[in-house]
C-alpha cells in the first residue's frame, strides 16, 4: 500500500515536468520568433536565452527530484 502510494506520487510528480517542458519551449520559441524578426540582435541574446531556459527548467528538475525521492529515498 505504501509502495503504491510512492509510485503514484512519483508518477504524479512527473506531470510537473510537462510544465517545465512548456516553459522551455516557450522561451525557445519566443527567442526564435524574435531572432527571425531581428536577426542582428539574436547573437547578443543567446546568454539571456540560456539563463531563461535554465530557470524554466529548474522547476522541472525539482519535480524530477521529488519523483526520485519518492521512489528511492522515502
Amino acid at each position: 500500500m505504501e509502495l503504491m502510494g510512492q509510485y503514484l506520487g512519483a508518477g504524479l510528480a512527473c506531470i510537473g515536468m510537462a510544465g517545465a517542458a512548456i516553459g522551455v519551449g516557450n522561451v525557445a520559441g519566443n527567442y526564435l520568433s524574435g531572432a527571425l524578426r531581428n536577426p542582428s540582435a539574436a547573437a547578443s541574446q543567446t546568454a539571456t536565452l540560456f539563463i531563461g531556459m535554465a530557470f524554466a527548467e529548474a522547476l522541472g528538475i525539482f519535480s524530477f527530484l521529488v519523483a526520485l525521492l519518492l521512489l528511492f529515498a522515502v
Binding site: E57, A58, I61, F62, L65
Partner: peptide, 13 residues
C-alpha cells in the same frame, strides 16, 4: 539549491 540540483539532476536523469 537550484544551481546544484539542476546540474546533478540533468546528468543523473
Amino acid at each position: 539549491v537550484s544551481h546544484s540540483i539542476r546540474l546533478a539532476g540533468n546528468v543523473m536523469a
